[in-house]
């Protein structure tokens, strides 16, 4: 019978379970890292962060979103460290006083993927802009992030170089998904479209379907990652000491070696290139 006592008992039990489970969080020494989907979804963090935690006892909680959103979140003070890939925006972030200092950490590269049938005939090319031009010429479907991510910004630069007005084609052969890299690759796989992706996300992506890497090796496809401690003077809740420890470790010999050691299927995905002085 559902009497008053069972009722109150049930409610109390739910409340207690909920509060105990919820309270279990956020006690340890930890920092909040605002980063991108490419670093998280590739598995780099799953490999890298435990090494750091083991050495320092500092847990790193990762929020993985597009570069633009990560920077916005950090600007609001919602994070201790920013680890993204859009150099110009990162420098603007520091210049505006939100960050202390930017350090190069590593790079990888973007690749153009597309259906094996390759209607634009771009396979094997090394000139990314030329490949995009060819895709635009035959109006083959192209899936774009269409968000505020580092990858999208790199893609727009390439379209500019190819002198293609993608805004005019949006909704036609040019399709902006407005979502993350993986989601965009899902869309590309689903409709046999071309796409620009970072190599790490691609390597770890499991729904490749009929897609393959068609264009790679262009210097214009270079993808630089940087790390920045969020400025504690601007955002007093930033855990400056712990955050700085993480930044220091990433650019240290040890951190750099760890990054170089991350592979998927024997393939190295990120290339450390920190300069001790930062930028």
């Amino acid at each position: 019978m559902l009497n008053r006592r069972t009722f109150v008992g049930l409610a109390t039990a739910v409340a207690l379970t909920a509060s105990s489970l919820l309270a279990a969080a956020n006690d340890a020494k930890s920092i909040l890292l605002q980063s991108t989907t490419s670093t998280a979804n590739s598995g780099l963090f799953d490999y890298l962060l435990p090494l750091f935690t083991e050495k320092t006892g500092i847990r790193v909680d990762v929020v993985a979103v597009g570069t633009g959103q990560a920077i916005k979140n950090a600007e609001n003070g919602d994070g201790d460290v920013l680890f993204v890939h859009a150099k110009a925006d990162e420098e603007a972030f520091v210049a505006a006083g939100h960050g202390v200092k930017r350090f190069d950490v590593m790079y990888n590269d973007f690749v153009v993927v597309g259906p094996k049938a390759d209607p634009a005939g771009v396979a094997g090319g090394r000139d990314a802009a030329a490949a995009l031009k060819a895709i635009a010429d035959v109006e083959a479907p192209f899936a774009s992030r269409g968000d505020d991510s580092g990858t999208y910004k790199a893609e727009l630069k390439l379209w500019q170089k190819a002198k293609v007005d993608v805004k005019a084609a949006s909704g036609g052969w040019y399709r902006e998904t407005g979502s993350g890299m993986g989601q965009t690759l899902n869309v590309a796989a689903g409709m046999g479209a071309y796409a620009l992706t970072d190599r790490a996300t691609w390597a770890a992506f499991e729904n490749k379907g009929d897609l393959a890497v068609l264009v790679e090796g262009d210097t214009a496809l270079f993808n630089q990652y940087g790390v920045i401690l969020v400025n504690p003077e601007k955002h007093p809740t930033v855990k400056a000491d712990l955050g700085q420890t993480f930044v220091d470790w990433l650019v240290s010999k040890e951190g750099q070696a760890a990054i170089a050691g991350f592979t998927i299927g024997g393939e190295q995905l990120f290339y450390p290139n920190a300069t001790p002085s930062g930028s």
Binding site: N26, V63, S179, G182, Q183, N186, N207
Partner: peptide, 24 residues
């Protein structure tokens, strides 16, 4: 929540994450 592993990851955000990794 931010879908932080071991802190704020729940069923639905885990599903979203695996979908975006292509692990359908």
């Amino acid at each position: 929540g931010g879908n932080i592993d071991h802190l704020t990851r729940v069923m639905t955000t885990a599903i979203a994450l695996e979908t975006s990794k292509g692990d359908l």
